[in-house]
Design a protein around this nucleic acid. Sequence first.
DNA 1: TACGCGTGGGG
DNA 2: TCCCCAAGCGT
Length: 288
Amino acid sequence: MPELAAPLIEWYRKNARELPWRAPGFGAWGTLVSEFMLQQTPVNRVIPHLDAWLTRWPAPTDLAAAAPADAVRQWANLGYPRRALWLHRAAVEIRDRHAGVVPRGVDDLLALTGIGDYTARAVAVFAYGDRHPVVDTNTRRVIARAVGGRSQPGPPTRSDLADMAGLLPAGREDAAMFNAATMELGAVVCTARAPRCDSCPITHICAWRTAGYPDTGDDRRRQARYEGSDRQARGAVLKTLRDADAAGIRTDELLADWSDPHQRDRAITSLADDGLIELVNGSARLPH
DNA sequence: TACGCGTGGGG
DNA sequence: TCCCCAAGCGT
């Protein structure tokens, strides 16, 4: 296998976007919050919310002292609001189990609510500089193409971690840079649709290019339709409650005009099950 | 392993 | 107009 890391790192040094979490001394808490927000939400939408969040809660203990409702409100329209709840829980766990300091070990990070394989290693690598494989949708796509010669990656697998580990340079600094560079390439050059192969720094190594850019199929999981879905109903309920005062809204007045009453009821029940809302005295409100 | 989970911008 | 896509996680 030709050397992948060197040209990627060189390209990254010259072309990396200036992003808030890449500023020197950004801090582990900022990194952790940014990674929560970046789970399925695009960079450009995250940036202003990240700034506001860290201004309000500069340390894990600050967020831990707040009510979950405040976290859900501050999350605003970033999407997947369970992440706000999970981030709040993680802050409480960091306060209680790690003396208010974001842990450095991958196992400790994995034990926190809302942190999985990606986020745990992203924090360990980007905040603490340790040597681990970071696997996300970008690195999986870049490796599927450059190494696997395929047009798209398959569904995520446990072996993705070992595949990335096998490509990692020996040194900690280089390894961290390689992780970041592979993600960056996937984000801005080796994109899911219409990749910009003309400006790619590893075309000379790319197995997909060598094979003539074949369409090898695409067995990635498709996202369910949103229009008319329960998710849409949940989103509408939560938006209403974010915009309401702390006392909430009577459940019989909540989304009273929703076209499917059963779906409305399902949304309210499932949100309560998830802890995103509380049902008290016939009213629904964000969790105190 | 496969599914449910928000929201908005771009092709 | 839709459909695709976005630094995933928990179950």
